[in-house]
Design a binder for these strands. Structure first.
Lengths: 236, 236
DNA sequence: AGTCACCTCGAACAGTGTGCGAGTAGTCTC
DNA sequence: GAGACTACTCGCACACTGTTCGAGGTGACT
């Protein structure tokens, strides 16, 4: 994986032809299905071929290699990001951020790919374009448009990736959240012993009823508004 | 990879013993060296064993599996994050954010791991504790301490991961930045044709001399101050 | 001297991505 | 209708992966 990511799929000429039998779109669709159903580790060329009733190596006619395939499925994730229509830039940005978050939640396997795989596909670009529009209309000028946009995307990714990664590895164990906490808490408590701030924090979690899942959600909101406020201040 | 991440290394009892010959620390150190030198794909149990003058399967006495090994090397990355001493919370937070950024830059392979692998190691926890201290002293109260901290970490990760991933995949191609731009620009231009905001942006890049590498750096600074301003406003 | 825990490791298994070359089937040209 | 050419499929093979198992060795303690 990832030896020479440039050339990306998007920088190559697409193979034109008759498109009988297998097609690239069909392959990508099947790959997303497989990924959604069984996760990133389960995606192999052989399995994917089998799912399509084809030999594994047939895929290589339509797709240069597995890395390319992954770029393609990632762009499908960007396709599911609901794009902002709102006029107000803050509202538009929120829609985008939550849309992105939602998209990754829907395709948990994308968490370990999303910052790492080049996002030059049509859907990724369209999403960028839309978000950028919001910042332009907001009144950001010059390179600040880029900066503001990057900030929002960065925050959204950085918040979402660990959250989704955690959730899907939790799911993989089969344990419930409370079971996990019961198992991990004592160890965490011991390790927090000589880390005063962490200790204090864990203590207060124990007092209040504390659901780390909703906490994460609220944390996302908190950070997003903080960031938007900070960006807004820049406008005046 | 990543079938049942809980149990994490940190939730298991460490195997105590004589520690003759191979040791866990030794293995982890060698793994980091290998990763730094050749990247994530190059880390295999056999190669690592060979580098230590040992059989591949000998490693399995000291480490349950590769996932555990990866948790261990990740904690080494957290070990290199320089921790803030400053009293001022803004300054402390900046030190942390740039420290984290720097750590990932020094170990580019960590970019595709850092949000995804559970960070429960001693070094990760110490770093958390320190950062948390800064927010506590700043005057954040209750759960807001967590939220503020999460926001900063999220932003930092989300900004750093794609940046480092891009740089190291650029390095893997052997091409220079300008060579790459020359190759990608025409395609990007074509794709931007019906995306007005992107088009406008690319045009203005072409006018000003535009180095995407320094731009990324400035973008990080821009977003970080915006976020800190937003968080600061919350304090009053 | 014997026992036992610690530690190493070769063989083997089931899987991976992918290059190659042979083979098939549909379409286009004469 | 014959031949040529392109589009596409796919079995085989290669070099590699993580990991299990069980047999062996080696040093310390009784």
């Amino acid at each position: 994986m990832s030896a020479k990511p440039f050339s990306s799929v998007w920088t190559r000429e697409r193979r034109g032809g008759r498109e009988q039998g297998l097609s690239r779109d069909q392959i990508v669709r099947a790959a997303v299905e497989l990924l959604d159903a069984e996760g990133l580790d389960a995606l192999s060329m052989r399995k994917l071929g089998a799912r399509l009733g084809a030999g594994a190596t047939s895929l290589y006619w339509h797709v240069a290699n597995k890395d390319e395939l992954i770029e393609l499925v990632m762009d499908e994730v960007y396709a599911t990001v609901v794009l902002p229509e709102a006029a107000d830039w803050r509202e538009a940005t929120r829609v985008f951020a939550y849309g992105m978050r939602h998209a990754v939640f829907e395709h948990p396997w994308s968490a370990s790919l999303i910052g790492v795989v080049p996002a030059l596909g049509p859907n990724a670009l369209t999403a960028s374009d839309r978000l950028m529009g919001a910042f332009v209309r907001a009144g950001f000028e010059g390179i600040d448009v880029d900066y503001a946009m990057t900030a929002v995307v960065s925050y959204t990714l950085g918040a979402t990736i660990p959250e989704v990664a955690f959730l899907s590895s939790l799911k993989a164990t089969g344990k419930s959240m409370t079971e996990l906490q019961a198992a991990v808490d004592p160890i965490l408590m011991k390790m927090a012993a000589d880390r005063p701030n962490l200790l204090e924090r864990y203590r207060s979690y124990a007092n209040e009823g504390f659901d780390p899942l909703v906490a994460r959600r609220l944390a996302f909101e908190f950070g997003l508004t903080a960031l938007l406020n900070g960006l807004g201040a820049r406008l005046r």
